[in-house]
Design a protein around this nucleic acid. Structure first.
Length: 813
RNA sequence: GCCCGGGUGGUGGAAUGGUAGACACGGAGGCCUCAAAAGCCUUUGCUCGCAAGGGCGUGCGGGUUCGAGUCCCGCCCCGGGUACCA
């Protein structure tokens, strides 16, 4: 009796067997060549969604394919289990974040197992696990000791009504508190920073050696934003402040300075204002402070707000006095918080000058037809004293040389990248292991006392304030250094800290006396293939790179390990009818319904087949039909087995065109995997199956059919692991996932006849099968022997022949 | 605004400068069936033609080339990132 393809039953059977399987468990002393394949560990939000399916099936095909190619593949997974949603749920429902999170993890893990993804679950990591918290805190202290962590004042969103800090998401678009409706203001709070900027140059330069999408590298380069220029000291007249320093990437334009501007946050701002203007300036600054940064930056377009300080600065190049302003278009946190105003060559300065009636001096000759306004491009210097006649590039150098020799300024490099603010006024995060003592300052908690764990007996109230700050038992402590009364740090770390080293812990998650074993990290790192969403292109990937470099310098990982992820692949997003699919929009199409009907293999196959893995997928009304199609294909594969008897040995296979056709398709499957074009691999697998059906119908050699079907099952193993395992076991009593990936016979392929296109005047007219070593003379003769070609070429023969053998001959008449 | 991607049948998409539309979805017709579902077969870019066969076709306009979806120049549209970073 013929049994149909019952995917859910087959899949559940194999998933039970895989629970105890050691196939994807590896150890540090594994003799096979290593491969570390890692998918970004997920935030546990409940059962898997299609985005997870896409991410983790792509990872899985990598793991299974490499394993079949004889490698020891490290394939771990864990959960990024700290974060705001669990805390918000606690406020709403009263359920403790740990209970909430553990439930979500169980759900997500369940659906990943249901998907059939292969992991070494012994290595599972959870960010909120005390054994992980301990080492996150340990690493924070190491960074502190290395001078890479420090405290500083930084602005936060402060709600005067709730008397607490708000996350950005809690501030509404109009700048009010989502809870109390009060106007949120920016207020400075003492917070912890990690000194990522000291690695700015290396983070920038090392991008060149990474095999990452160019797009991601570009985003990181822009984020770091390295700018080479000069600082120029300007003498201020009419105030006691003395001088200000401006930063510019265009020191060549110094003769075009017709004003100067300082940011409202400039520390010396009030000292810079003239006594008559000080009230107005103070009012302006106060007004700016009430507005959010977003509001300040958006909206105004060309109109640039600001007020004159009533004082002047001296242009060091020509001794002329120009007015000084405060304006919000100059940012306090970038450069020196002050700029020289050069309306001739800078668009923003041009707008400001126009608004405030300031003159313009052009210092670069304009190209013909330039419509007016600021000109930021190249050209010859004019109106610029000793710089006249130089190109912009040369003048920049000359200006810097002059600034340095005259003492008015110096060559400087500035970065857009800012230090990483890691303090979060939250409960559900990794506590920062610090004790504040009046006498001793910030003292790290002794390593043997780690981990510092947040107490469970806290109240989750909708105030927005961290429950830890109010917990006396937690916050009131004695100083580990002097034994005096002290206060525990109640802020927790940004969850990006947890994800900045989890890939290292995966190498050796069993270590109890250290975050990871040096030798294990040396064995497995760097990650050979990292897979995740492009939404992490900047923050996570930059922070993880920073951690790796810092830990390398601190000697915690091998000195030679400077980059964590050699290759990166970013898979496309899932959209629903054009918009982003997300839980908050309530428009998720869950995988579970497919698991229950067509099965995980069919859903996996759909994700491979729908298009290039890097492209977005639009989930439409037709998607279900395509998934049905994938299921139909798998049924065809399953049923084909009943028509092909199992035979021993493959000696009887004749060398004919059918063998070659199958081998070419086989080659395309492998090729698709290697170049991240799984959609073409699946297309080749479908053609392969169609070819076998045709061969069965044509009564082909049984040994050829047997060999072809066996090869098909082997090739399906990474894509649809359950189906392949089931049929392979039934036929051969062996585990398909322990078999070797099928190899093609290159010599046979290369010796086979190929298609030669015959063109006349560049138009395709005939296709003929020829020996790949055909000579030009033979090709022309064969082509001309074709009646159609002969009649098109006519009596005189071709005027000229272009031959790219063995692909094409083009006869020109 | 700037920086990346990308525009190919009704749809998803394929195509190292060399047969455009592989493979699939959907559609049409047929076989099987009392009927349906499932399955199988044929067909399916547009167009002229009874046919054989021809012409046109990869967002638009130019160019390079024997030959361009692919390379170059200039536009248009869509998606993403970033946003007063001096």
């Amino acid at each position: 009796m013929k049994v149909g393809y019952d995917a859910p039953a087959i899949e559940k059977k194999w998933q039970r067997l895989w629970e105890d399987s050691e196939t994807y468990q590896v150890s540090t002393d594994d003799p096979r060549p290593k491969a570390y394949v890692l998918c970004m560990y997920p935030y546990p939000s409940g059962p898997a969604h299609q985005g997870h399916v896409r991410n983790y099936t792509f990872g899985d095909v990598n793991v299974r394919f490499r394993t079949m190619n004889g490698m020891a593949v490290l394939s771990p997974l864990g959960f990024d289990s700290f974060g705001l949603p669990a805390e918000n749920a606690a406020i709403k429902t009263g359920v403790h974040p740990r209970i909430f999170t553990d439930e979500r993890i169980a759900e997500l893990k369940g659906s990943l197992k249901r998907l059939g993804a292969a992991y070494d679950w012994r290595r599972e990591i959870k960010s909120h696990d005390p054994s992980y918290i301990r080492w996150s805190q340990f690493l924070f202290i190491q960074l502190l000791n290395a001078g890479l962590a420090y405290q500083s004042e930084a602005p936060v969103n402060w709600c005067p009504g709730c008397k607490t800090v708000l996350a950005n998401e809690q501030v509404l678009a109009d700048g009010t508190c989502e809870r109390s409706g009060d106007l949120v203001i920016r207020r400075n709070l003492r917070q912890w920073f990690l000194r990522i900027t000291s690695y700015a140059d290396e983070l920038l330069d090392d991008l060149d050696q990474l095999d990452w999408p160019e797009r991601v590298k570009t985003m990181q380069r822009n984020w770091i934003g390295r700018s080479v220029g000069a600082e120029i000291d300007l003498e201020v007249c009419g105030s006691e402040a003395g001088k200000i320093t401006v930063f510019t990437t265009r020191p060549d334009t110094i003769y075009g300075m017709t004003f100067a501007v300082v940011a409202p946050e400039h520390p010396a701002i009030l000292a810079l204002a003239s006594p008559e203007r000080i009230d107005e300036v103070g009012a302006y600054i106060a007004e700016v402070a009430t507005r959010s940064e977003l509001d300040r930056v958006s909206g105004d377009g060309g109109f640039k707000k600001g007020v004159a300080l009533g004082t002047f600065v001296v242009n060091p190049a020509n001794g002329q006095k120009v007015p000084l302003y405060v304006a919000e278009y100059v940012l306090g946190h970038y450069g020196t918080g002050a700029v020289m105003g050069v309306p001739g060559e800078d668009e923003r300065d041009f707008d400001f000058a126009g608004t405030h009636g300031i003159g313009v001096i052009e210092t670069v000759s304009r190209p013909e037809g330039w419509p007016g306004g600021a000109y930021p491009g190249d050209g010859v210097k004019i109106n610029s004293g000793f710089l006249d006649g130089m190109t912009v590039q040369r003048a920049k150098e000359a200006a810097i040389t002059w600034l340095e020799s005259s003492g008015f300024g110096r060559r400087t490099v500035k970065y857009r990248l800012r230090d990483w603010l890691v303090s979060r006024q939250r409960y559900w995060g990794c506590p920062i292991p610090i004790i504040h003592c009046e006498g001793c300052g910030a003292v790290p908690v002794p390593v043997e006392e780690l981990p510092v764990l947040a107490p469970d007996d806290v109240e989750f109230l909708p105030t927005g304030e961290s429950p830890l700050a109010k917990h006396i038992g937690f916050s009131e402590v004695t100083c580990p250094s002097c034994g005096g009364k002290a206060r525990r740090e109640t802020d927790t770390m940004d969850t990006f800290v947890d994800s900045s080293w989890y890939f290292l812990r995966f190498c050796d998650p069993f270590a109890e006396d250290k975050p990871f074993d040096m030798a294990a990290v040396g064995k497995w790192m760097p990650v050979d293939q990292y897979i995740g969403g492009v939404e992490h292109a900047i923050l996570h990937l930059m922070y993880a790179r920073f951690f790796t470099k810092a830990l390398s310098d601190m000697g915690l990982v091998p000195k030679s390990l400077r980059e964590p992820f050699s290759k990166l692949f970013t898979q496309g997003m899932i959209r629903l009818e054009g918009s982003k699919m997300s839980k908050s929009k309530g428009n998720l199409v869950t995988p579970q319904r497919y698991f229950d009907t067509v099965g995980a293999d069919a859903l996996r196959l759909f994700h491979f087949f729908v298009g290039p893995p890097s492209d977005d997928v639009d989930w439409t009304s037709q998607t279900d039909e395509m998934i049905e199609g994938c299921h139909r294909f798998l049924s065809r594969v399953f049923n084909l087995g009943f028509q092909i008897p199992v035979l021993d040995g493959a000696d009887g296979i004749p060398e004919n065109e059918a063998v070659l056709e199958l081998m070419r398709l086989q080659d395309r499957v492998t090729n698709g995997i290697e170049r991240w074009a799984y959609n073409t691999s699946v297309a080749a697998l479908m053609e392969y199956t169609n070819a076998l059906y045709r061969l069965v119908a044509a009564g082909a050699d049984p040994y050829l059919l047997e060999h072809g079907y066996r090869t098909l099952l082997l090739m399906l193993a990474p894509f649809t692991p359950h189906l392949a395992a089931e049929v392979y076991e039934q036929r051969y009593g062996r585990d398909v996932h322990l078999e070797r990936w099928p190899q093609v016979d290159r010599e046979l392929l290369q010796a086979a006849l190929v298609s030669l296109v015959v063109q006349v005047n560049g138009k395709m007219r005939e296709v003929i099968e020829v020996d790949p070593k055909i000579t030009e003379e033979e090709a022309i003769q064969t082509a001309l022997a074709l009646p159609k070609v002969a009649s098109l070429v006519g009596e005189g023969g071709p005027r000229r022949v272009i031959a790219k053998l063995p692909k094409v001959v083009n006869l020109l008449v």
